[in-house]
Design a protein around this nucleic acid. Sequence first.
DNA 1: GACACATCCGGAGAGCCTCTCCGTTTCCCC
DNA 2: GGGGAAACGGAGAGGCTCTCCGGATGTGTC
Lengths: 193, 193
Amino acid sequence: MPTTQRTDARRNRERLLDAAHEAFTEAGADASLNDIARRAGVGPGTLYRHFPTRSALLAAVLHERIERLCAYAGHLTGTRPADEALAEWLRAFIAHNLAYHGLASALFLEAPDTLNANCHEDIRNAGAAVLTHAQRSGTARPDLSAPELLLLALGIALTTARPASRPAPTGTPTPDRLLALLLDTVHPRPHTP
Amino acid sequence: MPTTQRTDARRNRERLLDAAHEAFTEAGADASLNDIARRAGVGPGTLYRHFPTRSALLAAVLHERIERLCAYAGHLTGTRPADEALAEWLRAFIAHNLAYHGLASALFLEAPDTLNANCHEDIRNAGAAVLTHAQRSGTARPDLSAPELLLLALGIALTTARPASRPAPTGTPTPDRLLALLLDTVHPRPHTP
DNA sequence: GACACATCCGGAGAGCCTCTCCGTTTCCCC
DNA sequence: GGGGAAACGGAGAGGCTCTCCGGATGTGTC
């Protein structure tokens, strides 16, 4: 069993990822896998061999993006004051989850399996790193856990994501405003009244 | 055009609502409308005549529940201190949105149309009433709007709702804990450091 | 270069779902 | 009890997910 794929398999995989990116961009969660296979010039069987489930495909499409998000955490904690780093990373985290009309959030809510476990783990670790850093500097309350913070931020993405067709009506709170409110929770209370 | 439905129509409508309640309880968003019609002992055509879209059916199923939620707001502001009323109503709001494995939240994120516009409006008004009451009493920060608060609470429901099959893994933050964090944002800061 | 063979492809098709259309039945009112 | 409006129901079109397997295609070997 050679560790390398056949070249046609590798080529098809790339084509499928490109087609999936296109389809998810246009149709979000409603994108048809059949259609993605068609766009890639490939049979449905080929799609399912490369990506057994819709999540697997989504995880593969998001893979690079997630790696960048995680690397960004390291970059921020190294170059910015802890509270700025936390705020900026959360902003990036929310922006990431808004990708593909909020489809990226869906991956995060799925049951972790062998295919997306790394994504979950990596993001959780990145979030934990940024939060811990802020807590050590005294700019984040110590009783807050990373899963709590990430879920709250994820909620912001989920409630502000819009399906392709429907733009946000005016008056709808923006993700930035909701994040600002969330950050008020994160900062330690000056004192308990 | 008589304003009253025929008795068989009314009967079928009731049966459909019961069947839908069952199916949504079991399968959440994945419930098949075909299956709901079957359970109700009715053809698919009948289902679609009574409820032209899935949302319409969902809105009808949730109607009573939503009325209770809105009435609860009035009750709370009349009988409880403003901050307690706000906390308790938000708890109820989140619990409501967790119904049918989070399916109830979906209705809230949909584009308002003639069928569900009342639901949106009523809930928004109820939330605004409870929030305004708290703001007048000085227990909620004045720069917070009802849509903002509702979206944040809705986010909690969305991120903690679980599809039928998959219970929350231990260590997952509970809705109550996330709400407690959210309420910290809501209370006015003792002073700005 | 040709051969053998593991790998990979493609598309037909089963099964389900949404939603429509229209001939038929059922109720309601006179 | 009879006429007509209102409502029913189910066949069926079209699409989607996912599987299966005969056939095509790279790849290492001689």
